[in-house]
Design a protein around this nucleic acid. Structure first.
Lengths: 141, 141
DNA sequence: TATTGTTATACTCTATAACTATA
DNA sequence: TATAGTTATAGAGTATAACAATA
């Protein structure tokens, strides 16, 4: 039971948590002017990208439980940013409304600025390695 | 308002969020057997490292509000993992109890295994760049 | 029998506001 | 007057369990 000193700032896992908290907080600030959350912006991007995507599809793509989509999509729908169209008696396709596309366009600007700021913070020699390293941590091998 | 397709998996910010969620979830699983949370393990490491650290010191080191330390330290104290010693009428030094050191030793094993697993997931050419890249995202420049 | 959508609930981490007591 | 500890509360992003309806 030696009182080993563990320097947490040298642990990639700790740095990952701190970096994510710090950066996502900054993105949240940027999006707060549009009154949308980071998770909502992400979902809107996917809805905009895909054709006939359902709530379950989005949940699978984001690797979160589909139960969490319910309040999130309800809020987006209540605000007139998304619409649903029945695909059959069970599934509903999600689509952005005109207003939703407008908000997403603005969100995209903020996201672009955010991503630029993020990359700018990373010193040159490490820059190109960040994305593939992070992808390896969450994408299936 | 071109319906530009934004591939979120190519955004470092998105990858950062996904990677952190995925990996921290795995660490939480590892620590759940010890019935301690990730944030608690982090705090215990700092308490163990430093001498006469107060709750406010820990909060500053982790860059979180000191209000959040209250329920967390209370839980650790109730479980007999930490003790407090008055430094003056205002500040309290935090220390691990013998039981706390035992739990921390076990937590350290899990953390070491977790960090090894994390690094192992990152392909060789990117590996050494991950930590410095992440540090640049949360440490002051 | 697997999947979709849903309700209700809870957990983790972090934040804000406001207060007391001490340095 | 700045700091330490505290209380109470809220927000964001998850999770689990259980259910009805449909494919």
């Amino acid at each position: 039971m030696t009182p080993e000193r563990l320097d947490i700032d040298q642990l990639p896992g700790y740095a990952l948590r701190r970096a994510a908290n710090a950066m996502i907080g900054r993105l949240a600030e940027r999006l707060s002017g549009l009154d949308i959350r980071v998770s909502e912006a992400t979902a809107m991007i996917l809805v905009n990208n895909g054709d006939c995507l359902t709530a379950s599809d989005i949940a699978r793509a984001l690797d979160i439980r589909r139960t969490n989509m319910v309040p999130m999509l309800k809020r987006l729908e209540d605000r007139g940013l998304i619409e649903r169209r029945a695909l059959d008696g069970k599934s509903q396709a999600l689509m952005l409304t005109a207003q939703g596309e407008k908000v997403l366009a603005a969100a995209r600007q903020e996201i672009a600025a955010f991503e630029a700021e993020l990359i700018a913070r990373v010193p040159e020699p490490h820059r190109e390695h960040l994305l593939p390293a992070l992808q390896a941590l969450y994408l299936p091998p």
